[in-house]
C-alpha cells in the first residue's frame, strides 16, 4: 500500500484465502454432499470426493419437495414484490418531492413510520386482516347494529357477512409486502439531487407532470431501479414468516418453505444428500441475480445507509 511489507502482504493473501474458504465452506460441503449416494453421505466423516448421484438427488428433491410448483410460486411472489414495490415507491416519491400539497408532510411521515412496523411485530392482526380484508367494515357494521336496520328495510331477518380473504393467494403473498419505506426514501433522496433546472426546462417546454416523470425522471432513475430490483428480489424470494402464515394449500407454497419437508426427521433415513440438493436449487436464483447484477446491487445496498 504505502510502504513495502512483503511479509504482511503474503499473510494478507493467506488470511484472505482462508476467510473465503471458511465463508464458502458450508456451500462447498453441501455441493459435495448433494452428489453422494445415501450410503456415502451418512458415513462419518463424509468422503470429500464428489460422487455421481447429483442428478438423481436433484430429481428426488424436485419430486419430494414439490419444487416445480414451489419455484414458480416463489418466482411469482418475488417478482410481484419487486415490481410492486418499485412502482409504488416511484409514484410515492414523485408525489412527495415534485408536488406541493397540504397533506404532503402527513403522507411522508406515515410512510416513514412503516419502517418501525415490520411484519414480525404484528403477526396476528396482519394475518387477521389478510384472512378477511373486509373485517374492519364488518366490525363497523356490527357496532352500529346495522343488522337491525337491514332487517327493518328488508322486512325479515337477514345476515350480512362481509368477507374477502387473501389467504392462499398470490395477492395475499405479495400485497402486504409492497409498501416500503426504504425504497420510497431511496427514490426521494435521489429525486432531491436532480437539478431543478431539468424540471423547469420541462415545464417551460410544456411537459405535464406525467410526461416529465416518464421522459426524464424514469430514465435518470435506471441505476437506482436496477439496484432495487436485486435487493427486493432477494428479499421477496427469501421471505419466510409471511408465506408460512398465510399459505396452507400445498399448491401455493413457496420454495424456501417447502424445503422443510426435505429435512430428514430424527428416526428417518438420513437423506441429507436430497435435502441439500434441494436447498442448492432453491438458493440458486437469488444468488445468480446478485452475482450478475453485483455492481448495481452493491451501489444500492450501500446507498440505503444514507
Amino acid at each position: 500500500m504505502v510502504e513495502k511489507t512483503p511479509i504482511l502482504d503474503t499473510l494478507t493473501y493467506i488470511l484472505l484465502i482462508a476467510g473465503i474458504l471458511i465463508v464458502g465452506f458450508p456451500i462447498i460441503y453441501a455441493v459435495i454432499a448433494a452428489t453422494l449416494s445415501i450410503e456415502n453421505v451418512s458415513r462419518v466423516p463424509m468422503p470429500l470426493i464428489p460422487g455421481d448421484q447429483f442428478l438423481i438427488n436433484m430429481k428426488t428433491a424436485w419430486v419430494k419437495g414439490n419444487l416445480g410448483t414451489n419455484l414458480v410460486n416463489s418466482f411469482i411472489m418475488a417478482s410481484g414484490i419487486t415490481i410492486g414495490k418499485i412502482i409504488v415507491s416511484l409514484f410515492g416519491a414523485f408525489s412527495i418531492v415534485y408536488f406541493d400539497y397540504r397533506l404532503r408532510t402527513v403522507a411522508f411521515v406515515s410512510v416513514f413510520c412503516t419502517l418501525m412496523l415490520p411484519v414480525e411485530v404484528r403477526i396476528l392482526p396482519t394475518y387477521e386482516m389478510a384472512a378477511n380484508l373486509l373485517g374492519p367494515f364488518q366490525g363497523l357494521w356490527n357496532t352500529l347494529h346495522l343488522d337491525g336496520l337491514a332487517n327493518w328495510i328488508a322486512g325479515h331477518d337477514i345476515e350480512v357477512t362481509l368477507e374477502w380473504s387473501l389467504l392462499d393467494s398470490y395477492t395475499g403473498l405479495i400485497m402486504p409486502l409492497i409498501a416500503s419505506a426504504t425504497c420510497t426514501f431511496l427514490f426521494r433522496q435521489f429525486f432531491l439531487t436532480i437539478p431543478e433546472e431539468l424540471c423547469e426546462a420541462a415545464k417551460m417546454d410544456g411537459a405535464s407532470a406525467m410526461t416529465f416523470f416518464r421522459k426524464i425522471l424514469l430514465p435518470l432513475s435506471k441505476t437506482n431501479i436496477a439496484a432495487l430490483v436485486v435487493i427486493e428480489f432477494v428479499y421477496g424470494w427469501n421471505q419466510y414468516l409471511w408465506p408460512l402464515l398465510i399459505t396452507t394449500n400445498p399448491k401455493m407454497m413457496t420454495a424456501v418453505i417447502g424445503l422443510q419437508h426435505l429435512i430428514p426427521a430424527a428416526d428417518d433415513v438420513p437423506y441429507w444428500n436430497v435435502a441439500l440438493a434441494g436447498s442448492l436449487l432453491v438458493m440458486l436464483p437469488p444468488i445468480l441475480v446478485v452475482l450478475f447484477m453485483q455492481r448495481w446491487f452493491v451501489k444500492g445496498l450501500v446507498e440505503r445507509e444514507k
Partner: peptide, 16 residues
C-alpha cells in the same frame, strides 16, 4: 467470492 451468501435465505442457511 464473498458477496453471494447475502442471497441465501436465513432458513436455507439453517438447513446447511
Amino acid at each position: 467470492m464473498l458477496i453471494w451468501p447475502y442471497a441465501v435465505a436465513p432458513a436455507i442457511s439453517g438447513i446447511l
